[in-house]
Simulated scan of single mutants.
Amino acid sequence: MRKSRQFLTAAVLTAALSTLALAACGSDDSASSTGTPTPAPSVTAVAATLTIKDPWVKAAGAGAMTAAFGVLVNDTDADITVAAAESPASPMELHEMTMKDGKMVMQPKEGGFVIKAKGTHELSPGGDHLMLMKPAKAIEAGDEVSFTLKLGDGSTVPFTAIAKPFAGAGESYDPGMTMGSAAP
């Protein structure tokens, strides 16, 4: 957990410092060769202000579906959409839990996760989550798993999550399973 927080903090600080450096490079009010002031470049740092607080992944065996969780934090003045997620550990999908025919079921999240301006969006067991479809090898408690979030604007946000053992409320990430019907 400490390494993932350090990585996240370092990534945010690096992006912020890069943004400041780029802005400073273009903010010189000196005249260009035509005698008109040179405008500062437009710098967008959406990815630098989307962070993942307390990321973790449920430990699971090779080939067993599992999921990653945490809190997505949007510090910008605009909504941000997480359109997709990737990991070298497994093919991935964005998933949600929803009620169908009186049962809680898992399904792909159409349109991605929208994190409102200055808001948060929780990824949690039994709720929205980042689905690892079929990890090629076991994800053991204590393993660090790398992820990249793809945002609606085309930018990306990398992060690392620590694997934890978690029995939870009996949720399963196998297709067709409903809450409470899963094996531990």
Rank of each mutant, 00 (worst) to 15 (best):
Q6G: 01
T9L: 07
A10K: 03
A10P: 00
A11Y: 11
V12D: 03
T14D: 04
T14C: 00
L17H: 04
A21M: 13
A21K: 08
A24D: 13
S27I: 03
D29I: 03
S30D: 13
S32V: 03
S32A: 15
S32N: 14
G35L: 04
P37N: 08
P39L: 10
P39E: 09
P39T: 07
A40T: 14
V43R: 10
V43G: 10
A45Y: 01
V46Q: 07
L50R: 05
L50M: 11
P55Q: 06
W56E: 11
K58E: 15
A59P: 04
G61H: 05
M65A: 15
M65Y: 06
A68V: 00
A68L: 02
L72S: 02
N74T: 07
T76P: 01
I80F: 04
I80N: 00
T81Q: 14
A84K: 12
A84V: 10
A85V: 15
A85Y: 00
A89R: 09
E93G: 08
L94Q: 12
H95E: 13
T98G: 03
D101S: 13
K103V: 08
M106C: 00
M106P: 00
M106K: 06
Q107P: 00
Q107C: 06
P108Q: 03
P108R: 05
K109P: 01
E110Y: 09
G112R: 01
F113S: 06
K116E: 14
K116I: 01
A117R: 02
A117F: 03
K118Y: 08
G119Q: 05
T120N: 10
T120A: 12
T120R: 12
H121E: 07
P125I: 06
G127L: 10
G127N: 13
H129W: 09
L130G: 06
M131Q: 14
K134H: 09
K134E: 11
P135G: 08
P135I: 05
A138L: 06
A138F: 05
A138E: 15
I139E: 00
I139F: 02
A141H: 05
G142N: 10
G142C: 05
D143F: 09
D143L: 09
V145Y: 01
S146T: 08
T148I: 14
L149G: 03
G152W: 02
D153A: 02
D153V: 08
S155C: 01
T156F: 10
V157P: 01
P158L: 02
P158E: 07
F159S: 11
F159E: 10
I162Y: 02
A163Q: 09
P165C: 02
F166Y: 12
F166K: 02
A169W: 11
E171T: 11
S172A: 15
D174V: 07
D174E: 13
T178K: 07
G180D: 15
S181C: 00
A182W: 08
